[in-house]
Structures are given as structure tokens and as C-alpha cells.
Design a protein around this nucleic acid. Structure first.
Length: 815
RNA sequence: GCGGGUGUGGCGUAAUGGCAGCCGCGCCAGACUUAGGAUCUGGUGCCUCACGGCGUGGGGGUUCGAGUCCCUUCACCCGCACCA
């Protein structure tokens, strides 16, 4: 395989950012960062052939100790489906003077058994045969539809209900088994990027084909016997079970048997063959950004050549600005000498030079192998030596965010397998165990930008929810109309109006304007007041906002009663009811720099210390759980630290006794040692903090200041509160760091109790307690319990049906 | 629609099938205080004056015993989604 290859690929191009984006960097048709529109564009791009590893990436998941949700997400993302390809011969050979004798439409299907139910074939609008197949009579309709489909991604935002759209090409194929003519349609429910971009439509047994056929009045054939009560007026019968009917030589067969038989028949007749399809696409590897590893390739007469290994590393050049050039080329095009010289000594003296690649690698390039480099970070000759790689193997425990499920965590597995194939590393998986830590969430503030696209000549769909009047209020304003001539404009909509302006079509007299609102984050510090409640409206400080992140000073801010521009407020209606507040809306999401919702812990560190912050974060809840950042409970942890400090001190003076510890003190200590040990194994840090609190509370009650207890306690605490533990350790007279101290071991002898306080329950309800010696046998406990007055009281004179005694645990009497 | 996950006091949460609510926040009362947003002590699931009863989203089941296991249902969160 050529794992890295240059090809014309449909990419997600974001004009505002001037770069290509990966699928996972695009959310709902706009860039994840900034919320700018993203369009499909054909570009020459470097890609990595991750699809070559699809099967292995899928199969090796089973053996990994990763969470089921991540594994499942990867399985879905890889999306393996087994089916058959099948060729349909095109009927009319005279179209456009082309010889179509040997031209076929190839489809992919997982249900070849339904082939006798095919009543049409649907092509994706981008399918290469669309133009050829369109008859002159249908040309106008098809052309219009293609334009429509291109803009569909934008249009989708307008429609609440997904619409069924399509058009007839005018051409037919011949059914390979019945010889009947079958119409060829174009529909955008067929994706160009999956399978062959063409499907055989079986409306009787596929809900999407059913909907399409119903909408366009195409015949539906029933070829699998459904349950008697099935109503084909309402639904197709999609189940993969039943007996075939109206299907020639498949009649009477069960679906599973029929699939095998038809595949054999298809293959024998040379019509196609069994095939596996993956949803996974090859990964676009170039980015038109400055920051990123340069791709070590130069172009000799337009042919890409890779650098020799001894010419690496290729280091980023100096540029005057980290922005695309005026002509839209990547930032590296700004560099002066970004050229390769085959003979460097002749450089600048007439020696040959060739331009380097302008694209750089995406972020996931580095993140896919850094764990290997860490094994041997100072090696100048290799990225990692065999010895180091063999010694360290793979990562034992990887703690990372679940949001990387189908990005980084897939790529890192891909690179590991690839490096293993080259024999450079001994492992095929990067991490044995993966824990997804929950994300600390923050309250973000959202604003909505009104985005416009000029409509094409097709009739626009008018969304009833927005009236022409409201649109014209905005659009007929001169300043804004000027803005509308560009693809997007900085018109912001106050949060309470976002639904109203969510979508719409208007006209400025020349073009139809399609509009929708695009959500983006705004710095939480730009509000006029601090947000106190989640439900209340918070006002944006517009002038501060304009100074933030190079905003366009001419931006318009639409409020309920008018709009702000350049510090002036213009009312929509002269009713004196000046509703001029521009609101943001809150949302709890991942706390992240890119979401501008970060609350820095500096204040807490300053006032309560880094250990307090650290303990509090652990105390908040289980590691895997996401939780909003809320510091209201931090005083509990702060109190705990002070209480701990007081154990070792009298006032400000260290006060430690060398007396031997008492039994209860030792019990408290060893109970804690045991619990902390278990908690660390289980990553249950929240319960650790809780047991430290219990320990310190008990020792405080004992007024214990004994070295025999407090020294091991400091060590026990050191992974949780390293600073304070180190300081106490030092004060206790140690000169070496606590890091080197031996972790305490639990001595079970201190935990043994001589008696046990049995809960005595009746029909499962605990009524009272009775203490017995732990050595007392089950039978004796039963005997003793039955003689008690209390027992007789709850028996109310009845004889017990059954008495269950679980030794040193519980007594349950069934009445 | 498919997949994954979560439902326990006012809140964050805890409980190898064995006393539901540990630990903390908040709240209430008290002590020391000129003062308390400091510190300490006690209380705090709900209903009830009380005896007692009810309680882990709802319904059912297994069990001597269910927050925990099984079935079913609802709600919410996350991921994927015309994937043929």
C-alpha cells in the first residue's frame, strides 16, 4: 500500500479559516472553531490510507481493556458492512452518442436477496454517470436538481423536516434477472461517498426506498412474506427474516438462505461479487496552517518527491505572518526560501531548487506517536530505539478524554499498527487500558451570528415562522444590505430571538437570501454582570466584545426592539418600548480554552493552596464522571487540611509525641491504609479523600499527635496532597523527599475486633442490634437471638418460620 | 432510528446481594465572641405530636434479604446517523 498519497479529494474547506478541516472538526455544517460555514470542495490533498487497516482496527478492539462506549464508537465509525456489488446494464445505448453497450451502474447492497423487489435505481447527485444518463427531456430538471442538492447542506438548516427530493434521469437499466426495464433516479438520500454512490431501490423492504417511492409514486414490489398483520400502506417490511415470494428461483427460501443462493448466482453470472464496505474514510493529512510538522516533500516539475531520511528533519521556515497569502495559499507560501536544493552548496549560485509542499501535518500526526518518543526522547538517530521500545512496550494505562474516540484514539492505533508492520516497534496497540476521565465542565456563554448565503434561482422555500416584514426590517437597512453582498456577515442575534431568526429566506430585490443562525462561544468575562443563575438572561457588554478577538466594528447586534451598530441603537418600531438589551445564553459544556469558559484556579491556589484544589477535584466525584465546576463545597476540603495541620501542631509550633500509639489509634491508621490502597487500585480517589477525612476526625477525637501514626499518615497522603505532605515530612525531621519514603502496609491484626454487633432483622427489616463474640458459631448466635426479650416482642407470639444467620454480618428472622 | 451511559436527601455523592444516605456542602440550634463569611459542639431523607410508617425514576420478578441481579417502562446525557 502507498499509505500516504496525494489525490483530488472532496474536502471540508472553510474559507474563513483558510484551511481544510477533518470530518470531526466540522459540526452541523460549520467549523467547530468559530462556527464558520464549511463547504465541500475538490482539492489536491495528502491523505493517509487508514482504510487499509479498517479490519484490523475493528478486530483488535475486542482484546482491549477500554470502555465499551469508546470501542462501540470506533466500531460504528469504522462501520463494516458485508454485502454484494451488483451491476445493472444501462438500457438505452444511444444517449448522447456514447457507446454504452458495456456500461453498467454498479450498486452495493447488503440485501441481495431483495433483488427481485427492485423497482428503480437511485444515483447520488454527484455520481459520474449522471450527466451521461440524463435524457434531453429531463436535462433541465436534472440540472436544477443538481444545483439544489449542492446547496442542500445549507438548506437543511432551514427545514425542520427532512425532505425527500429527487429527479428522474429519463434513462433505464435492465434488471439482471427479470430483464425488465427499471428507471434510474437521482436522489440525495444516496451518498456519493459510500459504496458505489448508487443503490438498487427496494421500496417494499427498505424504509428509505419506501419513502422515496411513495413520494414519487413509484411501484413497490413485495417479495418477502411479512407477518399477516403487516400494513404496507404504512411501512416497508425491513426485517431480515421471512420467506421469499415473487422471486423466481428464490421463492420459498428463508432470507438467510436466499442471500447465499443469490450471491452465488450473481458471481456465476459475472454480475458482481461479495464485498465488504467500510464507512471509514481515508484521513486527509494536509492542513493549510503554519503550525504543524512540514510535510517532507518537494515538487520536481509538479511530481512530489520525498526527502531522504538523512535530510530530515525539515524545520518550519520563518514567515512574516501566520496567515494564508492574499492569493489563498497556505502560510508556508510566505516563506522566502521554502525550496529544496538537491545540492545545498550551489544554492543561490544557479543550483537547482524545487518548491516544498506548503501544507503541514494536522495535530493528530504528533499525537499518534509521542508515547513512543517519550521512551527514548534524546535519541538523535531513531525516533525510538529497539531496546527502549522492547523495554517499555505499550502504555499500561492511558487516561484521556472520551471526545477523542473517533479521532486521536483511532489514529494512534493506526500508526501503532503501521509502525509495527515496518518492524520498528514490538506492539500492535498503543494502550492496554484506557480510562476516560470525566470532563470538568464550565458554563459557556453563547451568541448567535446570523449567516447569509445568496440563494440560487430555484424557488426558495419560505419558512412560515419568519415573516417578510421582519426580514425586510433588517435587509432593507442600507448598511446591512451592503454586508449581504458577501457570503457571511457579522450580524448577531440576541439569544432570546435565536429561534425566531433561526432560519428564513428573504429577498433584497435581486437575490434570494437564505439565512440561519450560527452558534458561537463568547468569553464568559465579557458579560455585564457575573452569571448567578442558569435561567436568567445575562447581558453582553457589546463594546468590550468588539475589542475582543478582532471583531468587526461594524457588527450589528439585533435585540428585541432594534439593533446596535457603532454604539448607536436603532429601534425597529417607534413605540417607545426600547428593548435594547443584547443577551447571551448559557450552556454547560467541557471547560476549554476554545470555548472561552475557563475559570482559572489561580484564586483558589492563592487562597487555599494547590493541594486543596487538587483534593477538591478528586473529592467532587468518580474519575470517569463529568461534572460542572462548582467551588461551593471547597470549604470542606479546606477545613480538612487545616484540621490535618492541627494534628501535627500546637498553634504554629510542631508538636509531636514519640509515645507508642494506642490500639484504637493504630486501628484508625491501618483501616485508612487499607482503604487508600484499594482506592488507588480502583481509581476511586473521591472515596480516598473521604476516608482521609474520617481518619483525621478520629485522630482529632483521640487527640493523637504520635509520630508512630502521623508519619505513615503523611506518606499515605503524599500522592493526594503532595505539598503539604512534603512540608510535614520535612518538619518531622526528614531531609530526603517524602517521594522516597516507603508506602505504609496495612497490618490486618490491628483491624480484628473481638465482637460483632449483629443487626437483628425481621422479614428483612432491621429492628435492633445485639453484640456477640465473633467466634460464636452461627448455630449459637441463632440460639442466643431467639432467647432475647426483644426477639419475642417482634415475634408477637408466633413461631419463626426460618432464621438466617450470616456469620458476623446479619441475622434475619422470617415470621 | 442505532449504540453507549446515568437516574439515591435541598446539592456533590457513598454503599464485596446483608443496618440506604458514609464524607462533604447547605441549612437549623447552641458555645466562645465587640463582631462573624473564624473556630468548636449537636441536629438535619420524607410523613407523623408520638407509636410507627414510607423511602434509591415507575411497574413487575428472583431472593430469607435488592440501590445492587433479571424483565419491562419512563426521563435525561453522550456518540453515530439517509451508511444501502
Amino acid at each position: 500500500y502507498r499509505l500516504a498519497f496525494l489525490s483530488d479529494t472532496m474536502v471540508n474547506w472553510c474559507p474563513q479559516l483558510g484551511t481544510v478541516l477533518a470530518n470531526e472538526e466540522v459540526k452541523e455544517g460549520v467549523s467547530e472553531r468559530g462556527g464558520y460555514p464549511v463547504e465541500r470542495k475538490l482539492m489536491k490533498q495528502w491523505s493517509l490510507r487508514i482504510t487499509a487497516y479498517a479490519d484490523r482496527l475493528l478486530n483488535d478492539l475486542d482484546a482491549l481493556d477500554w470502555t465499551e462506549s469508546i470501542k462501540e464508537a470506533q466500531r460504528n465509525w469504522i462501520g463494516k458492512s458485508e454485502g454484494t456489488s451488483l451491476k445493472f446494464k444501462i438500457q438505452d445505448a444511444r444517449i448522447k452518442n456514447q457507446d454504452l453497450e458495456d456500461t453498467f451502474i454498479e450498486v452495493f447492497t447488503t440485501r441481495p436477496d431483495t433483488v427481485f423487489g427492485v423497482s428503480f435505481v437511485t444515483l447520488a447527485p454527484e455520481h459520474e454517470l449522471v450527466e451521461t444518463l440524463t435524457t434531453p427531456q429531463q436535462k433541465l430538471a436534472v440540472d436544477e436538481y443538481i444545483i439544489f442538492a449542492k446547496n442542500r447542506s445549507e438548506r437543511e438548516r432551514m427545514a425542520d423536516v427532512k425532505k425527500i427530493t429527487g429527479v428522474f434521469t429519463g434513462s433505464y437499466v435492465i434488471h439482471p434477472f427479470t430483464g425488465k426495464q427499471v428507471p434510474i433516479w437521482i436522489g440525495d438520500y444516496v451518498l456519493a461517498g459510500y459504496g458505489t454512490g448508487a443503490v438498487m431501490a427496494v421500496p417494499g423492504h427498505d424504509s428509505r426506498d419506501y419513502a422515496f417511492a411513495t413520494h414519487f409514486g413509484i411501484e413497490k414490489l413485495i417479495i418477502i412474506q411479512p407477518p399477516v398483520e403487516w400494513d404496507f400502506e404504512k411501512n416497508s417490511y425491513d426485517e431480515k427474516e421471512g420467506t421469499l415470494i415473487n422471486s423466481d428461483f428464490l421463492n420459498g427460501l428463508e432470507v438467510k438462505v436466499a442471500i447465499k443462493k443469490i450471491i452465488t448466482s450473481i458471481e456465476e453470472n459475472g454480475l458482481g461479487k461479495g464485498k465488504t464496505n467500510f464507512r471509514l474514510r481515508d484521513a486527509v493529512f494536509g492542513r493549510q496552517r503554519y503550525w504543524g510538522e512540514p510535510i517532507p516533500v518537494y515538487y520536481e516539475n509538479g511530481i512530489p518527491k520525498v526527502l531522504n531520511e538523512n535530510e530530515l528533519p525539515l524545520v518550519l521556515p520563518e514567515v512574516d505572518k501566520y496567515l494564508p497569502t492574499e492569493t489563498g495559499e497556505p502560510p508556508l507560501a510566505r516563506a522566502k526560501d521554502w525550496q529544496y536544493s538537491p545540492s545545498p552548496s550551489e544554492r543561490g549560485q544557479g543550483g537547482e531548487v524545487f518548491p516544498y509542499e506548503y501544507s503541514t501535518m494536522p495535530g493528530w500526526a504528533g499525537s499518534s506517536w509521542y508515547f513512543l518518543r517519550y521512551m527514548d526522547a534524546h535519541n538523535e538517530n531513531e525516533f525510538v530505539s529497539k531496546e527502549a521500545a522492547n523495554y517499555w512496550q505499550n502504555v499500561d494505562l492511558y487516561i484521556g478524554g472520551a471526545e477523542h474516540a473517533t479521532g486521536h484514539l483511532l489514529y494512534i492505533r493506526f500508526w501503532t499498527k503501521f509502525l509495527n508492520d515496518l518492524g520498528l516497534i514490538p506492539v500492535t496497540e498503543p494502550a492496554k487500558k484506557l480510562i476516560n476521565q470525566g470532563m470538568i465542565q464550565g458554563v459557556s456563554e453563547k451568541i448567535w451570528r446570523w449567516v447569509f448565503v445568496k440563494g440560487s434561482s430555484f424557488p426558495p422555500v419560505v419558512n412560515e415562522r419568519i415573516s417578510y416584514f421582519e426580514v425586510s426590517v433588517i435587509i432593507n437597512n442600507n448598511k446591512i444590505t451592503k454586508k449581504l453582498s458577501s457570503e457571511t456577515s457579522n450580524i448577531f442575534v440576541s439569544s432570546e430571538l435565536r429561534k425566531k431568526y433561526n432560519s428564513g429566506v428573504g429577498s433584497n430585490g435581486l437575490d434570494f437570501i437564505i439565512a440561519w443562525t450560527s452558534q458561537q462561544n463568547v468569553d464568559i468575562n465579557l458579560l455585564k454582570e457575573t452569571r448567578l443563575s442558569f435561567d436568567s438572561n445575562c447581558e453582553l457588554d457589546i463594546s468590550q466584545f468588539l475589542n475582543w478577538n478582532n471583531q468587526d466594528n461594524n457588527s450589528v447586534f439585533i435585540c428585541e426592539g432594534g439593533y446596535w451598530q457603532n454604539g448607536l441603537f436603532t429601534e425597529f418600531y417607534k413605540d417607545g418600548n426600547e428593548k435594547n438589551k443584547f443577551y447571551t445564553a448559557p450552556e454547560v459544556e467541557k471547560m476549554s480554552k476554545s470555548k472561552y469558559n475557563v475559570v482559572t484556579p489561580d484564586k483558589i491556589v492563592e487562597e487555599q493552596g494547590a493541594d486543596c484544589l487538587r483534593l477538591y477535584e478528586m473529592f467532587l466525584g468518580p474519575l470517569e464522571q463529568s461534572k460542572p465546576w462548582n467551588t461551593s463545597g471547597i470549604s470542606g476540603v479546606s477545613n480538612f487540611i487545616r484540621k490535618l495541620w492541627r494534628l501535627y501542631h500546637n498553634g504554629d509550633v510542631l508538636n509531636i509525641s514519640n509515645e507508642p500509639a494506642t490500639k484504637p489509634e493504630l486501628k484508625t491508621l491501618h483501616k485508612t491504609i487499607k482503604k487508600i490502597g484499594q482506592d488507588i487500585e480502583n481509581f476511586s480517589f473521591n472515596t480516598s479523600v473521604s476516608s482521609f477525612m474520617i481518619c483525621v476526625n478520629e485522630l482529632t477525637d483521640f487527640k493523637c499527635n504520635k509520630r508512630e501514626i502521623l508519619e505513615p499518615l503523611a506518606i499515605l497522603l503524599s500522592p493526594y496532597a503532595p505539598h503539604i505532605a512534603e512540608e510535614l515530612w520535612n518538619k518531622l525531621g526528614h531531609t530526603e523527599s517524602i517521594t522516597y519514603a516507603t508506602f505504609p502496609v496495612c497490618n490486618e491484626d490491628y483491624l480484628i475486633e473481638s465482637s460483632f454487633n449483629y443487626p437483628i432483622s425481621f422479614n428483612g427489616k432491621t429492628r435492633f442490634f445485639q453484640e456477640y463474640d465473633r467466634s460464636l458459631s452461627k448455630e449459637d448466635v441463632e440460639k442466643e437471638v431467639l432467647t432475647l426479650d426483644q426477639t419475642q416482642k417482634y415475634l408477637e407470639g408466633k413461631a419463626p418460620k426460618k432464621v438466617i444467620v450470616v456469620h458476623n454480618k446479619i441475622v434475619n428472622i422470617v415470621v
